[in-house]
């Protein structure tokens, strides 16, 4: 997969499937005018970045600080390894997004530990919450730390490098028997946020639970995700970045590229491959090949975002 390009004339089914099996530490995203490209592991990504000026940012997800079960007795340690990988990148990314489940149980000490490690990247971090970040009784710890300047349950947008970024919250007010949930208030805000935007503006939507239906039997999807995607349909370049499922998956539909990042804490099984989506215990030697981060690179005047998933090891 190293150096593989999702641009050009489209992505064959087999290539998409290859990407789905290609797991890593993080995703390096390259936005080059519209659609993301998956560049492979970090060296080739950096080579591509160097070839043309642009903007790159990182995605980190599902750090589950506080998790200490057999699937990874030291989730804080692997988060620190991921930050070490980020700091070792020769080209410094512009900023980082964290797609939720910062902590495992929303304890103050877990948030504090996460902050202590993630801040070592010395990057601005834009967070969206996962369901594990809203577990404290008063549901205030996440909001106190990361909710400033956000709307509703914590959604917001910002612009960077010519790209419009929209952070969505789909882990609140979940309905029995259902999937992730955005809700009417957030969808109305999204419509408002996009009003007047040029259709050539590259859009990045990010949220914790996949906005597309990955595997409803395990709750891997968002009930009203389709309504958000309808609103970005006319844009030339849309990239949807999610976490929650602790593995890399990608698909491309027209101008929309969907991508999920690895966790830095523990892997989860492929859809339907186990009795439940719970933490998957693998041999110690394999664990770091299944954790990682992602980087994304945006280049002016190109129609593609490049996404690079980098495992902690391998």
């Amino acid at each position: 997969m190293s150096g593989h390009d999702h641009g050009g004339d489209g992505v064959s089914r087999r290539k998409v499937l290859e990407c789905m099996t290609w797991a890593g530490t993080g995703v390096l995203w390259t936005v080059t005018g519209g659609v993301p490209r998956s560049l492979g592991i970090i060296d080739s990504a950096q080579a591509a970045t160097a070839a043309a000026p642009g903007m790159s940012f990182l995605q980190i997800s599902d750090s589950h600080v506080g998790f200490d079960k057999p699937a990874n007795p030291n989730a804080l340690g692997t988060l620190e390894e991921a930050v070490g990988k980020i700091n070792a990148m020769p080209a410094k990314p512009s900023f980082m997004i964290h797609t939720g489940d910062i902590t495992h149980l929303s304890k103050a000490a877990e948030f504090d530990n996460a902050e202590r490690i993630i801040s070592q990247s010395k990057l601005d971090v834009h967070y969206v919450p996962g369901e594990h970040d809203f577990l404290d009784e008063e549901v205030k710890l996440y909001r106190e730390r990361y909710g400033r300047g956000t709307k509703g349950q914590g959604w917001y947008s910002f612009d960077a490098g010519g790209v419009h970024f929209i952070g969505l919250v789909n882990v609140v007010d979940l309905k029995a028997g259902g999937l992730g949930n955005l809700g009417a208030e957030q969808l109305a805000w999204l419509q408002d946020d996009l009003r007047g935007k040029s259709k050539s503006t590259p859009i990045v939507l990010f949220a914790h639970i996949p906005l597309w239906t990955v595997y409803p039997e395990w709750g891997w999807g968002t009930e009203d995700g389709g309504r958000a995607l309808e609103q970005v349909k006319g844009f030339g370049s849309v990239t949807v970045l999610n976490g929650h499922i602790h593995q890399v998956m990608q698909k491309v539909e027209g101008n929309v590229t969907f991508h999920t990042a690895r966790s830095t804490a523990f892997p989860q099984p492929a859809p339907g491959a186990a009795a439940s989506p719970g933490p998957m215990k693998v041999e110690d030697a394999r664990l770091r090949g299944m954790l990682g981060v992602a980087s994304i690179n945006f280049k002016q005047n190109e129609q593609r975002l490049a996404i690079i998933d980098t495992p902690l090891q391998g």
């Binding site: 079960k69 028997g177 999937l179």
Partner: peptide, 26 residues
Amino acid sequence: TDDKFSFTFTNAGDYKYFCSLHPHMT
């Protein structure tokens, strides 16, 4: 893990319930 929750049902009726974190669990 291993935490417990108890509820005493004093009134007849059907009580649907779910996991608010994983709503497919009912």
